[in-house]
Design a protein around this nucleic acid. Sequence first.
DNA 1: CAATGCAATCTTGTATACAATATAGCGCAC
DNA 2: GTGCGCTATATTGTATACAAGATTGCATTG
Lengths: 238, 238
Amino acid sequence: MALSASKKPQKADAPITKDTIANALSHAIHQHWIAPGTKLGEDELSDIYGVSRTIVRAALQTLAHQQIVEIRRNRGAFIAKPSLTEAHEVFEARELLEPRTARSAARLATPQDIDLLEGHIAQEHDALKAGNHGRALFLSGQFHLEVARIAQQQTIADMIKVLIARSSLIIALYWRRESALCESQAHHALIKAIADQDGDHAEDLMKSHLVDLHSALNLREQPAVQHDLRDLLLKPSG
Amino acid sequence: MALSASKKPQKADAPITKDTIANALSHAIHQHWIAPGTKLGEDELSDIYGVSRTIVRAALQTLAHQQIVEIRRNRGAFIAKPSLTEAHEVFEARELLEPRTARSAARLATPQDIDLLEGHIAQEHDALKAGNHGRALFLSGQFHLEVARIAQQQTIADMIKVLIARSSLIIALYWRRESALCESQAHHALIKAIADQDGDHAEDLMKSHLVDLHSALNLREQPAVQHDLRDLLLKPSG
DNA sequence: CAATGCAATCTTGTATACAATATAGCGCAC
DNA sequence: GTGCGCTATATTGTATACAAGATTGCATTG
């Protein structure tokens, strides 16, 4: 498995629990350290984390419930590979939920919240400059999570958290745009709308931001059209 | 624990897995056979289902991820007791998601789908007539799940499934209206809008239906006011 | 060379044993 | 009667052993 030793967990004071393992794996997945489809063997993770298979299995189940790992009975656990349909569904769900959180965030954000959001963008910019695309991707997702946190609706924030994790897999599989994932201009504009307590504008910006992200996946559907054309070309001689 | 012997699982050909146990418990919770706050002991469930604690723990973890069971470390698993805040959040999330599924269902429903939805109402009516409120409650929730299934957006349907399960707990704790949970008139009107392929109307009806349900919880906030008043009355003599 | 069959090995599923923590009950002091 | 301390017991957390299923590698056949 592609987990390198440099990614081995620190043996700190905190005990290794199913949650620490699940979080570590989730973090690694989010940063694209582990590719979709990768097998996660129980014994291997057990060795890596220094716990029994019992804890590992519980961690894998947690990740499976978040749909970022797929457990196939008798065959093992694998990083999920969302289908194109799932990809569309995930972004569609985000387009439904996140504009609302942006609106609420515009109503509820404190100056500290604004600072924190801006800090996120700065860190993301630093990561990109350093060529650390994985970290930039992670921070980009965290930005969205922070907006959801500011909105003070935990139930919806929890849903968004799962959707963002799944988005990371989707991006690994289907993203083909050259530019950075989330253009910082979009995030900046969003922060301004939130700071200005302009709920309408924040909602519109978040919606169009996500539609934009979604459209970057739509690009992947073009090869299907080319495929049909190819079938057409093969038919006359078939 | 309040699980009665009459609710003991059938020892059928299907093996008892974590999923069958989780589903059985979820079903029992949904029908209010088990009250919020009830302790679910591992050994007890292990006895009841005839499997080891390993399987039981996996089932409980599944239910914990659905937030209908709360696992407290070193203390055990309990049927969740959503706070009033959580109650509001859950219905707010439903108000955001389900109108969209209703709109999509109006676009996608087949005549068979309409028949099935109508069948749900009939069964619910039968259950109420027979005084089987638990079953009526379950079917009422299933109606909403069916609308979500018809909408063909699995990601959102999965979210709605969890929200409906949690709604069942919320209703057990906070519901005080004398009438049946979902008035069949609301469901009938919704079916008609869906059958008529009237997405706008279906969306509006679902929204107002959920707002209505949500408002039945709001009623529970009134005692808080009375509680404050009582404190005021006690203060002068305190 | 490719396909098939078989045995060995690996991995996952499950039960059980042991460790750690919490709870209940009893006796004693005030 | 109440509160505290202690012990026994119950329950949960975790590791380990065993069973079941899958995969791999090798030998044989066509």
